[in-house]
Design a protein around this nucleic acid. Structure first.
Lengths: 148, 148
DNA sequence: CTGCTTGCAAATAGTTTGCACGTTC
DNA sequence: GAACGTGCAAACTATTTGCAAGCAG
């Protein structure tokens, strides 16, 4: 086996597709690896990358995130109304977003298996639910007056 | 009982809150009633309203939709990446969106009861899922090459 | 040297806001 | 006639695109 460096592993996938290994790409991947399963907006990623490489443009980050999504390395999720958030594809988890306090709860994908089966049987629809958060109220925010 | 007109019934709720009855509001409500449970974007609504009242501004429609949401008469849903879609609050249904062909399937909220109960027990989270569509693949689009 | 990548600036989509005027109660 | 609503234009947020110059392979 070659490199143990996970950054270079992903760069390798990019090369396999005829893509080039650039500093901006390595930096973007590094940020995503370092923050693990957090939910970073594109802007978060941009500012983290700029700490090391101040001249990288936002558009470059967006383009690289799109490339990484095509590769299947990265996914983006919509939490509420704000910007999309990006994270590495790995553990498939679904997001519960509290519409009062903004808290995000991660739920393993297996929790959705029974629902998935029911929708497959009844509607022939195969869900792939991670792309949007499920809204609701967390324990703390229940029993208070409604808001939005 | 007073008016049987559903437009005036909603206008009545607006008045109860100290709001005024205006042409733009009546027109907006009329469009939503006429199209029933369809999924109209703000732009769709604007252009429908403009057929009768060409001078109504987009911003007015947005403001009135917000007012109607505060009243609980209207809800908006995010189907995929495009604009929000608005419809009357009534039957609580969840949306399944095919990420290949864009087809929208409506599913009654009861289908989600077991999941809701599980999440409530395990995480103390009370879901209110209608705000975002669940992504996936419809029957026709399964078994083809992936896309996004 | 070929063409993938980048930075920059400008364009875009969807929605929101400021403000002075108009209308409703 | 006071408060609320409206049109218009401009601002805003998140993201995308055109283009000429820059590097990677």
């Amino acid at each position: 086996m070659a490199t143990a460096d996970p950054v270079e592993a992903i760069i390798g996938k990019i090369r396999d597709r005829g893509g080039r290994a650039t500093d901006a790409r390595r930096a973007t991947i590094r940020v995503l690896l370092n923050t693990g399963q957090s939910h970073l907006s594109a802007e978060d990623i941009v500012s983290q990358v700029k700490l090391q490489h101040p001249d990288v443009a936002e558009s470059t980050i967006y383009r690289n995130l799109a490339t990484l999504e095509e590769l299947g390395v990265v996914e983006h999720v919509h939490l509420g109304h704000g910007p999309s958030t990006y994270h590495l594809t790995e553990d498939g988890h679904q997001h519960l977003l509290c519409e009062r306090c903004g808290k995000v709860i991660e739920v393993p994908e297996e929790t959705f298996a029974p629902l998935a089966e029911q929708l497959a049987t009844t509607y022939g629809f195969r869900i792939h639910p991670r792309h949007f958060a499920i809204m609701g109220l967390c324990r703390r925010c229940q029993g208070q007056r409604r808001a939005h």
